[in-house]
Design a protein around this nucleic acid. Structure first.
Lengths: 146, 146
DNA sequence: ACGTGTGTTGACGTTGACGTAAGGGTCACT
DNA sequence: AGTGACCCTTACGTCAACGTCAACACACGT
């Protein structure tokens, strides 16, 4: 490979480069382009991702990690271009964030409830088993994935 | 015996009765029948759900609540009929329960991480907004500037 | 010239749990 | 006889976020 990395070339990424860096598949990046989340240029047939694309991808994945839908993410990302000092974008992001946060907290409540429910159910089942003279202690978790 | 039979016979449910009681739609019960989770009898064209069906539905919904898939639920429910003192059924239920419990706990860890991530992100956004002289103190939001 | 590796483009499949449409029957009241 | 409530059927649609092909293009090294 060439030793000189001028700035322009440093800010260009091929699809597999980005895939490796962010651990996603090419299909995913093409999907994001199709969804208008990324806008890679073309060189012949091949996609060329810019530094901006890379930054957007990073934001997309972070957004996904906290449970935003791709549509939500697109909405927030699109506001980058409005340039009213980015205030609108920030306000939208904040409001969406607060909503999502509430959503996550609701999920957490439901999840905690599910966990205690399930724990209690398992205890009942184990009680029924020991009643029948079957040992349920110190067994290895039978990792039976069907 | 005859009185008991009468009581048993009295426990017949139409589709909408069960729907109202468990807050599900008719489509759902038909779907469960199609998936072999419920086995209502017919009277003419109409489904007649027995007390057993009602009990199964209750179990189905409880299973769903703790995150079991319908396939898992079916597997466990089907073991009711094997009658080896129900030991097999209990053992399968226990093992599936433990697996699902681990799954839920994993989810909980991810969820907690997502929540703190999102909280931090919101703080950053709010910081950027107050920097721009915009008020972020919403009326019902509990988040105050630190 | 050849294979290998990397890229491209659709188009269809997957998963889970149903929803919806479209059409029609039966029954009790009024 | 009409109205409305309830019931049935089959079949296709939905959502999210991709996965999985198939078929084809291009460059590189040998």
């Amino acid at each position: 490979m060439s030793e000189l990395m001028n700035e322009e070339q440093a800010r260009r990424y091929t699809i597999t480069q980005l895939c490796r860096e962010f651990d996603v598949t090419p299909r995913t990046l093409r999907f994001y382009e199709q969804k208008d989340l990324l806008h890679p240029a073309r060189e012949g047939m091949n996609r060329i991702f810019s530094y901006r694309d890379r930054a957007r991808l990073s934001l997309i994945l972070r957004g996904k990690k906290v449970g935003f839908s791709l549509d939500d993410i697109k909405e927030m990302l699109d506001l980058y271009n409005l340039k009213d000092g980015q205030v609108t974008q920030l306000q939208v992001a904040r409001s969406k964030g607060l909503a999502q946060l509430e959503h996550l907290k609701d999920q957490k409540l439901a999840l905690d409830e599910a966990i205690t429910d399930l724990e209690r159910a398992i205890e009942i089942v184990e009680g029924m088993l020991t009643e029948r003279g079957i040992d349920t202690e110190a067994e290895f978790a039978q990792a039976e994935s069907a």
